[in-house]
C-alpha cells in the first residue's frame, strides 16, 4: 500500500486552473522528485501533500486516511527556510521537537536536538540567530528541524533554489547522503534536472501550467552513492537528462514562427562619439 497518494486531484486559484487530475502513489522509503518550470504548480502540489491546502476535487490520502491538515508525520521544508528570526538555530529546532515529543525528558530532547544540529554540520553555529547565518546554513537549520521531528514523509519545496551554485552543490550532496542513509520517504520538488537525477528513485515531470499534470515517470537506476562528477560519464544520466528536458519543453512550446532572415537590415552605425 502506498504511504501517500494523490487521487485525481484538481486545484484552482480564482480563475486559474493550476492542477488538473493529478494522481500519484508514493511508496514508503522511496525518493520521488517532481520536476517542473517555475509557476507550473509544484508548490501547490506539495502544499496539498502536506495538508496546507485542500484540493477542489479528488483527495490526498496518507496511510489510508484522508489528509485534511498538516501533521508531524509529513514535514515540509520550505524554499525560504521559514525560521523564527528571534530564536537561535538550536531553539528553532527545539520548538518543533518540543511540540512533537512533549513526553520526552528535557535531557532526551536536548540530546536529540544536538544530534540533528550536528548532523547538518552546525555545531559551531547552534547559538546564532538566522540573521547571523548564510542562506545555506539557514536551510540546513530548516532541514535539521524537519528531520528532528522524525517524520514518516519528508516534503521539500525547492529547498535549494535560493542558494548560489556552489552552496547548492554542497547541500545536494548532503541530501543525497540523507536520502541514502535515513530510509525516509522523501518527496522533493525542483526545477533542476541534474539535482533530480542525483537524488531520485523516480522522477515525475510536472507539465507546464496552467492545467498542469504529471507526465511519464522516469525511474533512475543509477546505483548509490551517486557522485556528481562521475554522473557526467554515465550514459544513463545523459539519456534521462535529455529525455526529461525534452518532455518538459514539449509541454511548454509557445507558438513561435521559425526565425527567417531579418525583417529589415539596419544601417551600419558608427560608434557614437
Amino acid at each position: 500500500m502506498p504511504i501517500l497518494s494523490l487521487r485525481n486531484v484538481s486545484k484552482s486559484y480564482g480563475s486559474t486552473h493550476v492542477l488538473d487530475n493529478v494522481s500519484l502513489d508514493i511508496e514508503a522509503g522511496e525518493v520521488v522528485v517532481i520536476v517542473g518550470f517555475s509557476g507550473a504548480g509544484k508548490s501547490t502540489l506539495i502544499s496539498l501533500l502536506c495538508g496546507l491546502d485542500t484540493p477542489d476535487a479528488g483527495e490526498v490520502v496518507f496511510k489510508g486516511s484522508r489528509v485534511t491538515e498538516p501533521g508531524p508525520e509529513r514535514m515540509l521544508v520550505f524554499q525560504n527556510y521559514s525560521l523564527l528570526p528571534w530564536l537561535s538555530a538550536s531553539d528553532n529546532v527545539a520548538l518543533a521537537v518540543d511540540q512533537v515529543f512533549p513526553r520526552w525528558s528535557k535531557e532526551k530532547r536536548q540530546a536529540h536536538i544536538a544530534r540533528f544540529i550536528n548532523m547538518v554540520g552546525l555545531d559551531h553555529a547552534r547559538d546564532r540567530k538566522p540573521a547571523q547565518l548564510s542562506g545555506g546554513m539557514r536551510q540546513r537549520v530548516a532541514l535539521a528541524r524537519a528531520l528532528a521531528t522524525d517524520p514518516e514523509v519528508l516534503l521539500m519545496d525547492e529547498p535549494l533554489s535560493a542558494l548560489d551554485a556552489l552552496t547548492r552543490a554542497t547541500l545536494q550532496d548532503g541530501l543525497e547522503s540523507i536520502a541514502r542513509t535515513s530510509g525516509k520517504t522523501i518527496v522533493l520538488v525542483t526545477n533542476d534536472v541534474d539535482e533530480a537525477i542525483l537524488l531520485a528513485d523516480r522522477i515525475l515531470p510536472l507539465s507546464a501550467g496552467p492545467r498542469a499534470t504529471l507526465g511519464p515517470e522516469f525511474p533512475i537506476a543509477i546505483p548509490r552513492p551517486r557522485e556528481r562528477r562521475a554522473l557526467n560519464k554515465n550514459p544513463e544520466f545523459r539519456h534521462v537528462r535529455t529525455a526529461v528536458v525534452d518532455y518538459l519543453l514539449s509541454t511548454k512550446r509557445s507558438p513561435r514562427p521559425a526565425a527567417t532572415a531579418p525583417l529589415a537590415s539596419a544601417p551600419l552605425l558608427e560608434p557614437a562619439r
Binding site: F37, N191, D194, V245, A259, T260, A261, P262
Partner: peptide
C-alpha cells in the same frame, strides 16, 4: 535570474534568433 528549465527554453530561442544572421 531564471530557473534552470526556463533557461534552457530561452537558450533555444536565443540560438534560433542568432542563427538567422
Amino acid at each position: 535570474m531564471l530557473d534552470s528549465l526556463t533557461r534552457i527554453e530561452l537558450q533555444d530561442i536565443l540560438l534560433e534568433l542568432w542563427a538567422q544572421d
